[in-house]
Amino acid sequence: MVIYLRWIVALALVYLALTSNLEPSNIVVGLLLAGGVVALIRPPRRPTQPRRPLRSVVASARYVLTLGYDMVVSGVQVARIVLSPSLPIRPGIVAIPAETNTDLGIALSAHAVSLTPGELVVEIDDDHMMYTHCLDATHAETYIKDAHDLRIELLNEIFP
């Protein structure tokens, strides 16, 4: 029941953000709509509960900030490659271990790798190896490893 309430509140917040109208009647409409959606879909119970809520919130914030910074760097880097006359790319597909075991962890780290400079996950195999297309594949492994380690550390704190 508590889990369903959490989903209802989250969905109602999305509805309020979309309508950007905080009148009491609108809040009631949002809660009713969210309740209807949850009753129809029956979202699955979350597999793991964070043991230390505060630390996992801090880690989530750091994770989102890291992602935002990576996106900015990624945009500038790709724009520079595209705009330079000689088009300096050395493309290739590099294998990187995902280093997490849960499905959610693998999905999140593949998402993060795809957001970071010049990398795009093409395929993930059964051994949790992410085959990543890089615009510059010469030093990709060491370069990706550093950024990847930080994110894995944060992800492990969010989902212990």
């Binding site: 290739g92 597909i93 590099v94 395929e123 085959y131």
Partner: peptide, 13 residues
């Protein structure tokens, strides 16, 4: 195919 690829770990695997 990839053009001018310098490595392809996925094909090797």
């Amino acid at each position: 195919p990839m053009k001018n690829a310098i490595r392809d770990d996925l094909a090797a695997a």
